[in-house]
Design a protein around this nucleic acid. Structure first.
Lengths: 219, 219
DNA sequence: CAGGTTACTGTGTGATTTCAGATTATCCAC
DNA sequence: GTGGATAATCTGAAATCACACAGTAACCTG
């Protein structure tokens, strides 16, 4: 693990680091991101930082802000609905495809992630919730072995992350029902449709929460 | 148009140029892409080229080849089916949303693009076919005004482009039925579902052609 | 409050360093 | 002595950096 990052080129390290910061809410929506700020913070040259930012903007995780600043985008209601639509297309399908490739070890890893997720919820740890929720879904989807759909899903999570963070920061981790248990049960039974259905429900719940928040903020 | 590219930063110019090269088949699948090769060819510095390549890899238009080489990807059958699935999710939806925003001027522009497309087919111009086919769909989808879905669609076209080129290069532009006329008719009637249906059919045809080719090549 | 100046940020270039892969040379076994 | 395999070297490209340039926004002064 450690030796992986050691031999990885800088631009990939920066990319991953920034990615995590966006995904887990360390960068707030609207917050400006400057190249030289990152250079100072992560202690690397400008070139790798520029490449990482370029990559993230092309994935929609950062946006050009009129002038030449980039910042973390804050989706409006219409954009949120687009993200929701796309996620509901892609993620149940990924879940379905993942089922037949899952080994017992994989499933127990998912169970462990879900346990850590629940622990984070119990102690009101928003960052922990975001991280383990992401890792739960990401690990499940990875098992589908489909890189095109997976890259789309990752892109969508990147766009959804900051908004989730805002809502959770406001309302806390209480009342966070998820359908992970349901998904795990179907998974153990080898019921692909059941898993897809559970994941769909899980996504719909999360989406609805943010959606209500956006509706309320809008009016 | 010309003054746009004149004031555009180099990395965007390079990005667009490479993008077109991939989209319209100037770069063959599997062909290695080197930074210094592009530097020499387009006469710009390394940094802009690196940024453009980074962006294209994050969109799946180029892939890291194990070590630090990048090349144009060649989807196998499974990947092609993923692309197909995602396109069929996204593009009919984009078409549907586009309908209500289309003005008469927009429609006549689409008609003009379709005419040029047919002219390209008639003269056996593969590159022209790819370009006008792309521009027909791209223009239609742009009118939906939905940037998230649009960026996904663009990503998928980028992944599909090289394969289309291979098939067309092999079988020529004869026997290229499309459903553009059908789509245009529904569009003029304001029939959103009809447009979505026609686009779905159009995509399915194109997909099937490549799919057969991949099946044949595989066995 | 307006005009100009300053500080800062993004952009582009070329030199330098690092690295993966291929080629060649050497050594050991047979 | 020959065949094979392993190790050292060589090559070309990628990765990084430091600097020069340009444009913008903020600030300061009158």
């Amino acid at each position: 693990m450690a030796e992986q990052t050691a031999k990885l080129p800088d631009h990939q390290i920066v990319y991953r680091r920034l990615r995590e910061m966006i995904l887990f809410g360390e960068l707030a929506p609207g917050q400006p991101v400057t190249i030289q700020g990152i250079v100072a913070e992560l202690d690397v040259g400008m070139t790798p930082v520029r490449e990482a930012i370029r990559r993230l903007t092309s994935e929609g995780a950062l946006v050009f802000k009129g002038n030449r600043r980039v910042s973390v985008p804050q989706p409006d209601l219409a954009q949120w609905d687009e993200i929701a639509f796309a996620r509901l297309c892609v993620e149940p399908e990924l879940s379905r495809k993942a089922v037949e490739n899952m080994t017992k070890t994989d499933i127990s890893h998912l169970v462990s992630l879900d346990d850590q997720l629940n622990a984070a919820i119990a102690r009101g740890d928003v960052r922990g919730y975001l991280e383990f929720n992401y890792r739960f879904h990401a690990f499940l989807y990875e098992q589908a072995g489909t890189d095109v759909l997976l890259s789309i899903a990752n892109m969508l999570w990147l766009r959804a992350g900051p908004s989730l963070r805002v809502v959770l920061g406001r309302y806390g981790t209480a009342n966070l029902p998820d359908k992970h248990a349901e998904a795990l049960a179907a998974l153990k039974a080898g019921d692909a449709d059941g898993v897809a259905q559970a994941v769909r429900g899980d996504i719909e719940q999360g989406i609805a929460q943010v959606r209500e928040h956006l509706l309320a903020a809008n009016k």
